[in-house]
């Protein structure tokens, strides 16, 4: 069974997914950061594949992408780092990245490599549902990779249902009209949207991301979904950290408190 399904079969509440950029803050930090996220008690690890032009990301993640690229990170390098990571990491691991670097790597070679190293799912923000269905669905399924779709407050009920039908793993609910890291806190308007989607009784679990940064926002988001995703706030925490492992674990403890 895909580790993502296994997770949601056994845990339905307060699922915490942490995003970080591969090769950030230093090139060889990828695995230590993953280990610390696991030790800190998160449930899913989302590894960002750095890209020069991340159009859905705000300044914090843009900056981490740029630093990772300057550090020499690439998809090829990432797969080298990930060889054997399953000896240490049992959490579901999802790769989040933009299409272009993956296309250049070769879509099939990429999927094959994901399976080989032990990746469970993909979040590709610039791959819309139709393009996924037309071009990549079969390939992803062949290699056992879940494709995780985003929905936003603007997504119509009809489309949410279509996305639900074509999703596996979980649905990534973008909490507001925003790029990553742009807004913090949760407004009443957002809660109305969370409630609206909750009432739809979708077949897939939902995680809320964008604007989640601390115990309060994590708890609020978890009240209306199966949990939440933290990205920019986590990147800020580790950017200048002198003791990655400790700082990450302390931060996650605080979020889960």
């Amino acid at each position: 069974m895909n580790r993502i399904n296994y997770l949601f079969n056994t845990k339905k509440e307060r699922v915490l997914s942490i995003y970080f950029t591969a090769g950030f803050p230093k090139l060889e930090d990828t695995l230590p950061v993953m280990e610390a996220i696991q030790a800190g008690g998160a449930d899913i690890i989302e590894i960002g594949v750095p890209y020069s032009d991340p159009i859905a990301d705000g300044p914090t993640i843009q900056d981490s992408n740029l630093i990772a690229l300057e550090n020499g990170m690439s998809l090829k390098k990432l797969f080298e780092q990930l060889v054997g990571f399953r000896a240490k990491i049992h959490l579901p691991v999802v790769l989040m990245g933009y299409l272009n670097p993956i296309m250049q790597y070769g879509m099939e070679a990429f999927c094959k490599k994901c399976k080989e190293v032990g990746i469970d799912g993909l979040i590709l923000p610039d791959l819309p549902m139709q393009q996924y269905l037309d071009e990549f669905k079969e390939l992803f399924e062949e290699y056992g990779l879940f494709n995780i779709f985003l929905i936003s407050p603007q997504t119509s009920e009809k489309r949410i249902r279509e996305i639900d039908q074509n999703s596996n793993g979980f649905i990534y609910m973008v909490s507001s009209h925003s790029i990553t890291g742009a807004k913090t806190g949760i407004t009443e308007e957002q809660i109305a949207y969370f409630e609206r989607v909750e009432a739809m009784n979708l077949k897939n679990p939902r995680l809320i991301g964008f604007g989640i940064s601390d115990a309060e926002t994590f708890t609020t988001a978890s009240q209306y979904s199966n949990g939440a995703i933290i990205g920019s706030a986590f990147i800020k925490k580790i950017k200048d950290s002198q003791n990655l492992s400790q700082d990450i674990q302390d931060y996650l403890k605080g979020v889960k408190a």
Partner: peptide
């Protein structure tokens, strides 16, 4: 060939797909 600003086109990029 690659993807830039929402469409598949020809673009200047590195081997790793960075623009």
């Amino acid at each position: 060939p690659g993807i830039l600003h929402g469409s598949k086109t020809i673009l200047m990029q590195t081997e790793d797909g960075q623009v």
